[in-house]
């Protein structure tokens, strides 16, 4: 288990395992295609993952995946075999992912931002994304004003809705749990959300407009705000979360 394998090394027969990432099938056997460690993944854990692989392989033009691969969804008890690199290839945002972004620039049509995290995983390098004015919220789309929703520097939780053009991903915050999760006021204090579209500075008590994320639904990795008044409670919650995960 976890042995180092090299490209072209025979791993097993394709009747024993299902070929997955970092492997390929050649003449009834599974071979490694990269340098890395060979792992087996139990199939019942990621049944969803299996569906993804089959759909991508059928839509792709590659002919290397044998036809029984598609049948494997129904009554196959084989586990997956993967070879993972020691240099992680890095995760990439995909449609439907909830990502954490930082707003870089705003203009009346869109807010351009840098994608920092996908789900709970931090990216090695950032990707560009834009939140267009029509994707900020679900209702009263025509009355949205970008500068009342985001400011440069805000940390925003958003969903990837399209891979976009060659420059940037298209993101959306048109859900209650999506929106600004962390923002600083003009004086540099962390603002506290007071309503769905306003945040207040604890120092100057001025209110600024934001598209605020409703936090308690989203739950994970967005505990960055509320740290002035409810700090202790949040910490307790954090501890609970952690123990749950363990």
């Amino acid at each position: 288990m976890n042995t180092i394998v090299t490209p072209g090394q025979k791993l097993c027969k394709d009747t024993e395992y299902i070929s997955s990432e970092g492997t390929y099938v050649h003449k009834g056997s599974i071979y490694s295609s990269v340098l890395g460690f060979s792992h087996t993944i139990k199939r019942n854990i990621n049944t969803d993952n299996n569906n993804e692989t089959t759909t991508t392989s059928s839509s792709g033009s590659s002919s290397s995946i044998p036809s029984e691969y598609n049948n494997s969804t129904s009554e196959d008890k084989r586990d997956y075999i993967v070879v993972l690199k020691e240099k992680e290839p890095g995760i990439v945002p995909e449609i439907g992912n909830v990502v954490t972004v930082q707003v870089l620039r705003i203009n009346p049509r869109l807010a351009s931002c840098a994608i920092l995290c996908v789900g709970t995983k931090a990216l090695k390098e950032t990707f560009n994304g834009v939140i267009r004015v029509q994707d900020v919220r679900a209702t009263e789309i025509d009355k949205v004003e970008i500068y009342k929703s985001f400011r440069p520097g805000d940390i925003v939780s958003a969903e990837v809705i399209s891979l976009g053009d060659s420059r940037s991903y298209y993101l959306s915050t048109a859900k209650n749990e999506l929106g600004v999760v962390f923002a600083q006021s003009v004086v540099g204090a962390t603002m506290i959300p007071v309503s769905w579209n306003q945040m207040q500075c604890p120092k100057t008590k001025t209110k600024e407009y934001r598209k605020v994320a409703k936090m308690d639904i989203a739950g994970t990795d967005q505990d960055d705000d509320n740290d002035t008044e409810n700090g202790h409670e949040n910490e307790k919650e954090d501890n609970n979360n952690e123990s749950d995960q363990e």
């Binding site: 090299t6 490209p7 072209g8 390929y24 295609s33 990269v34 340098l35 240099k87």
Partner: peptide, 11 residues
């Protein structure tokens, strides 16, 4: 190629 982690059939 192996260092880059590009999938190959063989050496």
């Amino acid at each position: 190629m192996i260092d880059a982690g590009i999938p190959m059939r063989d050496y």
